[in-house]
């Protein structure tokens, strides 16, 4: 380059913006999570957001009028008949799925073990919104069924995942712990905590698939066993990017989106 040309350029002036768009932070987090699980041999499964009561509750060992249903504040759409929906049985009760666990049922109804799947997706809860609560959010469901899948395996898979997901920033070993909890579709049921800034923080629910759930999809629980887990993708994103208000994800505010 000649000296003459160089004089015309002020190298300190801002470069011209290419005008590239930005991916949503929840897309980025889903991508990172699914990549990690794919590397561990998990397939991605999906299910509808507009579910039937059977898949969202009954098949998951949450019978009608069970107090466990109080753990899921539910949006109730009008029945297929009232809504004019043609691809569902007319009298079935519809729900906006309250968790991604119904994907477990769909998958197990159509696939024979052994298998390992994850199912990321949108879920809905009828509740007042604030900085940590939204009426919709994303979960990542996991399910692994085989002849000898144990709770110790669950612990290792969770450790591996969180290690890969969170470690990049400081390289420190991620610490997790299991403690007793209750989800009707697993037994034992556990909560998974992760140590974050010297404090334990709830990060996933998990457990060994309940025999009733296996029976509901016609798998003999004496032959098959496995673990299931579920975690909030919004929550992972909030921790990863230090976002303090869940509502930002659904605000459509480009001042937020363009930071990612």
């Amino acid at each position: 380059m000649s000296g003459k040309q160089k004089q015309k350029i002020d190298v300190t002036a801002p470069g011209k913006k290419v005008g590239r768009g930005h991916l949503h932070p929840l897309t980025l987090v889903q991508k990172k999570a699914t990549d990690i699980f794919s590397s561990m041999g998990f397939n991605i499964a999906e299910g509808p957001e507009l579910e039937t009561e059977y898949y969202n509750f009954d098949a998951l060992n949450i019978p009608p009028n069970h107090p466990a249903r109080d753990m899921h504040d539910t949006f109730w759409p009008r029945s297929p008949k009232q809504s004019g929906i043609s691809n569902k049985a007319p009298e079935e009760n519809l729900v906006m799925r309250t968790h991604t666990s119904p994907v477990q049922i769909h998958y197990m109804e159509t696939n024979m073990p052994p298998f390992r799947i994850i199912a990321p997706g949108r879920v809905f809860r009828y509740e007042a919104t604030d900085a940590t609560h939204e009426i919709q959010f994303y979960q990542l469901e996991g399910l692994m069924v085989g002849k000898n899948i144990t709770l110790g395996n669950l612990k290792a898979v969770m450790e591996t995942f969180f290690q890969k997901f969170f470690s990049a920033s400081d390289g420190k070993k991620v610490e997790i712990r299991l403690r007793p909890s209750y989800f009707p579709f697993v037994e034992p049921g556990v909560e998974i905590d992760m140590k974050f800034k010297e404090k334990w923080m709830e990060i996933a629910g998990a457990g060994m698939v309940h025999p009733n759930v296996l029976e509901n999809v016609k798998l003999d629980p004496r032959e098959w066993q496995g673990f299931a887990f579920g975690m909030g993708i919004d929550r992972l994103a909030m921790i990863k990017y230090k976002i303090d208000d869940i509502r930002l994800f659904y605000s459509g505010d480009l001042r937020f989106i363009k930071q990612f």
């Binding site: 768009g21 991916l23 929840l26 897309t27 949006f75 109730w76 759409p77 009008r78 906006m96 459509g252």
Partner: peptide, 20 residues
């Protein structure tokens, strides 16, 4: 140059009504 949005699944009008 397009940025990604996640909007609400709910809307003032539509085909399927939410009872609550």
């Amino acid at each position: 140059g397009f940025s990604e949005i996640y909007n609400y699944s709910f809307n003032p009008v539509g085909d399927i009504e939410i009872m609550n």
